[in-house]
């Protein structure tokens, strides 16, 4: 079931999968907080996709997750922003919309965003996130912008420590480089 060539060796899988599973679980929580109906089956399928090699190609993984986790047009439209913010660390800017699902409007993460901004214009106002293309000054980063919910500190440290370990560096460097590459949109 591989889409992207051979899988890594057993030792590699074990360690990588543990870190990636924790990160995936955090992403699923982010999606739920943003109004996505994500169940156990979706989580299992997502893990299967990552194990099948999609993790090596962020653009492909984003597209695959988008099909898997979106259930309606409103999900579809905000997914890319959430993915980029979480996995690629891209900043997203918020945009108030008069349309959108009630779930999204009620989600805690989006509500916190709305609270920072001015009064909403209507009862059904929801927030849509789109990737930011402009570079705002550091001091203004919080205005109308959202950072992805970060992975737990311990996880980030584990990942950083792992990247710094000299052994098995080539595969890890390649993996890291793949994830830092700009994501081509279809």
């Amino acid at each position: 079931m591989s889409c992207c060539g051979n899988s890594p060796g057993y030792d590699e899988i074990d360690e990588v999968s543990r870190l990636v599973s924790a990160k995936l679980a955090a992403f699923l929580k982010t999606l739920r907080d943003s109004g996505f109906a994500v169940g156990l089956q979706e989580g299992r399928d997502a893990a299967a996709l990552m194990a099948a090699g999609y993790i090596k190609k962020p653009g492909l993984l984003r597209s695959a997750f988008k099909h898997l986790f979106s259930a309606r047009k409103s999900d579809w439209e905000k997914f890319d922003g959430l993915f980029d913010a979480f996995w690629l660390g891209k900043r997203v800017k918020s945009r108030s919309m008069t349309m959108g699902s009630a779930k999204a409007a009620n989600s805690p993460s989006l509500k916190s965003l709305q609270d920072k901004k001015s009064e909403p214009t209507g009862g059904e106002a929801a927030t849509d996130q789109i990737p930011s293309t402009d570079d705002a000054p550091e001091g203004r980063a919080g205005e109308g912008r959202m950072e992805a919910p970060r992975a737990p500190t311990i996880l980030r440290k584990s990942i950083s420590a792992r990247w710094r370990t000299p052994t098995r560096s080539s595969k890890r460097t390649k993996l890291r480089r793949d994830w830092q590459k700009p994501c081509a949109r279809d």
Binding site: M1, C3, L49, A52, S63, K66, L68, D186
Partner: peptide, 15 residues
Amino acid sequence: ADGELATAISLMQLL
């Protein structure tokens, strides 16, 4: 088809 639709079809087969 665009790339995203092709991905969706490949996922149909995979999942």
